[in-house]
Design a binder for these strands. Structure first.
Length: 348
DNA sequence: TATCTCTGTCGTCATACGAC
DNA sequence: GTCGTATGACGACAGAGATA
């Protein structure tokens, strides 16, 4: 299979996985075949070399044939251990004598597998609508996570923002963002705060702030930043309102920036960007369009990274779910066999 | 050792979708 | 309708392993 074909194959499988997951959630009928099917898809989808191995299922403690529901330890690939409670109580006399309890327990497990059904039957139209939509990994995974204990949820954007360093949270909202030739991003915030973001860093951790103490009061809507790719001394400069220059004084892991008076005229290759209010010439319009495009590409680049991260997490979640369901299924089969042995008439 | 194949990752584009 | 976000699709690239 060629590369393109492989991708389409993967796509088909992933799509089918999603559909099966939703189907099983809404049907409440998670069968072993579904679990095996998902497992097979996952192994195909993740490739041969980098197969994130399926969860190691250690049935520790499942041998407790007596007593309350057996708890099975499921070792997940991420070194997580999930406690899986037996679906049916062990074949102790009380279980057999109390079928109602068993029914209730089965119903409870079914509810944990899919919470939607417990709310009522979804009409077929809405269900078809849900299935026809493109999957949102976050949404699907969160739904799965609500059903399966031990499976982490994908955090909402808000929580991710909460994880940002406090100094970032106190920054003013940037009004203009500019990208240097080295890929760094410079955000001019209201109040003259300059934020320098290193794209190589993770998220906003690379943000640095410079506050201009004597930037004065720029005319409204006239924030102009002139970025010089490289000055004669090898440093990077960009010009900010007030006829000042912010100079990258050092390169490397910890670049430093200094605010100086301009020592040189604007060199060649300068990329100028201006706020929409100050646009006049076609060249400025083109530069503004370029700036917007770069900003859009930057955002989309980050979005793609985030999306892929969520996708990986989603696949891991599915793998964990497969492991859990396989353990449950195995226990069900064992208990069914036990019940058959007990209830079957003796043929002496 | 050079080449090929496979796989994973990344950037970009197109588009669906939801919020306004 | 517009805008921002999420995600599928595609191509490019790099690295690892297999093979001649």
């Amino acid at each position: 299979m060629n590369k393109c074909g492989r991708k389409k194959y993967i796509k088909t499988n992933l799509r089918q996985m999603t559909m099966e997951t939703i189907e099983s959630q809404q049907d409440g009928s998670v069968t072993d075949s579904v679990a095996e099917s998902e497992s097979a898809h996952m192994q195909t989808q993740t490739g041969q070399n980098s197969v994130p191995t399926l969860a190691q299922v250690s049935v520790a403690g499942s041998g407790t044939r007596r007593g309350s529901p057996a708890v099975t330890l499921v070792q997940l690939p991420s070194d997580q251990t999930v406690h899986v409670q037996g679906v049916i109580h062990t074949p102790q006399p009380s279980v057999i004598q109390s079928p109602q309890i068993q029914t209730v327990q089965v119903a409870t497990i079914a509810e944990t597998d899919e919470s939607a059904e417990s709310e009522g039957v979804i009409d077929s139209h809405k269900r078809r609508e849900i299935l026809s939509r493109r999957p949102s990994y976050r949404k699907i995974l969160n739904e799965l996570s609500s059903d399966v204990p031990g499976v982490p949820k994908i955090e909402e954007e808000k929580s991710e923002e909460e994880g940002t360093p406090p100094n970032i949270a106190t920054m003013a909202v940037p009004t203009s963002i500019y990208q240097t030739s080295t890929g760094q991003y410079i955000a001019i915030a209201q109040g003259g705060t300059i934020q320098i973001s290193n794209p190589g860093s993770d998220g906003v951790q690379g943000l640095q702030a410079l506050t201009m103490t004597n930037s004065g009061a720029p005319p409204p809507g006239a924030t102009i930043v002139q970025y010089a790719a490289q000055s004669a001394d090898g440093t990077q400069q960009f010009f900010v309102p007030g006829s000042q220059v912010v100079v990258q004084a050092a390169t490397g892991d910890m670049p430093t920036y200094q605010i100086r008076a301009p020592t040189t005229a604007l060199p060649q290759g300068v990329v100028m960007a201006a706020s929409p209010g100050s646009l006049h010439s076609p060249q400025q319009l083109a530069e503004e369009a370029t700036r917007k495009r770069e900003l859009r590409l930057m955002k989309n680049r980050e979005a793609a990274k985030e999306c892929r991260r969520r996708k990986k997490e989603y696949v891991k979640c599915l793998e964990s779910r497969v492991a859990v369901l396989e353990v449950q299924n195995k226990k069900l089969i064992e208990e069914l066999e036990t019940l058959k042995d007990i209830c079957s008439p003796k043929t002496d």
